[in-house]
């Protein structure tokens, strides 16, 4: 019983990290109607920028204080988001969903290539930003890094939810998520929406990178988290900020249970396959997810 609860605690904490990555998917979709397959690469890019201004700068002899380094990373994320909007997505406004999806796929290989060219393929130690260690709660242990990340995820969810449902800008973004052409005809700036979406998405992804990687190994394989978070975003509903952490917890707990009970029987495949089986199940049973918008087909 103690073991089971410990597994559940770990599943919930890891699931909330998935939720955080899923939020970065949802933020971009919710503000611009772009499903960005390259989210894992965006996260990786943020992580490498963060590495450069902390560990990299220290190695070069310019040790920056942590808040300055974080500020610089945030600035780089903003510049990156604006650049993506200007260079790739502004010329594609009004194009079909297929074209925009394919632009995301092209972005995936572009970012992977750029990251590999700038930083090389070798793995390195990510900077320690959140404290390592474990919090003891009676007989149970909780990883402090993941715990802080989980609290951050919940706070961010609440803040983003208020932003998207209460603020003027957030409501304008919802119009863009509904339909580009309609939003344009109503005087909503789609360009601005896409820029905001990418800046927010990049910032959230980098925050997720901090929670995920603080003090562990940073390598190109980390980008795989993007594909793991995609089922989470889909289960929560692509338009729902609050759905993402909940779906993250569901997937995280299922994955933790599969790792413990199914992996020994299936040679380690169950936990790897589970998020995608869940994704196909969601698509078959409830394609718009738990809290997504139900779209009506019109001719």
């Amino acid at each position: 019983m103690t073991g089971l609860i410990q597994i559940l605690i770990e599943g919930v904490l890891v699931g909330l990290v998935y939720g955080l990555v899923a939020i970065s998917f949802v933020v971009i979709y919710r503000a611009s109607r772009i499903i960005n397959l390259a989210q894992g690469e965006v996260l990786l890019f943020g992580a490498y920028v963060l590495w450069s201004v902390t560990e990299g700068a220290r190695a070069a002899g310019v040790g920056l204080p942590l808040p300055v380094a974080l500020g610089l990373t945030a600035l780089a994320c903003i510049a990156f988001g604006v650049m993506l909007e200007r260079g790739i997505f502004r010329p594609l406004i009004g194009q079909s969903g297929f074209t925009i999806f394919m632009a995301g796929v092209a972005l995936l290989i572009l970012l992977r290539g750029v990251t590999q060219l700038l930083w090389g393929a070798q793995s390195r130690t990510a900077p320690v930003i959140l404290p390592e260690g474990a919090l003891t709660l009676g007989p149970f242990l909780a990883n402090t890094r993941l715990l802080i990340g989980a609290l951050f995820t919940l706070a961010l969810t609440a803040a983003l939810h208020v932003f998207f449902t209460r603020s003027r800008l957030g409501l304008r973004l919802a119009a863009v998520a509904e339909d580009h052409v309609t939003a344009l005809s109503l005087g909503v700036s789609v360009r601005q929406a896409i820029a905001v979406a990418w800046v927010l998405g990049t910032l959230v992804a980098t925050a997720a990178a901090v929670v995920l990687l603080s003090g562990s190994i940073l390598s190109l394989e980390v980008a795989g988290i993007g594909f793991k978070a995609l089922p989470v975003a889909l289960l929560g509903g692509l338009e729902s900020i609050r759905g993402a952490p909940l779906a993250g917890v569901i997937i995280g707990v299922l994955e933790a249970l599969a790792t413990t009970y199914l992996d020994p029987i299936t040679n380690g495949a169950a936990s790897g396959v589970l998020p995608y089986v869940a994704m196909i199940a969601v698509l078959l049973i409830r394609p718009y997810g738990l809290f997504g918008w139900r779209r009506i087909e019109r001719l």
């Binding site: 594609l92 194009q95 394919m102 632009a103 092209a106 972005l107 290989i109 992977r112 750029v114 060219l117």
Partner: peptide, 16 residues
């Protein structure tokens, strides 16, 4: 890395 970047730029150029 370079061949990935080149292909991605070709695809983006084609799309745009």
């Amino acid at each position: 890395a370079l061949s990935s970047i080149l292909l991605a730029l070709c695809v983006l150029a084609a799309l745009i």
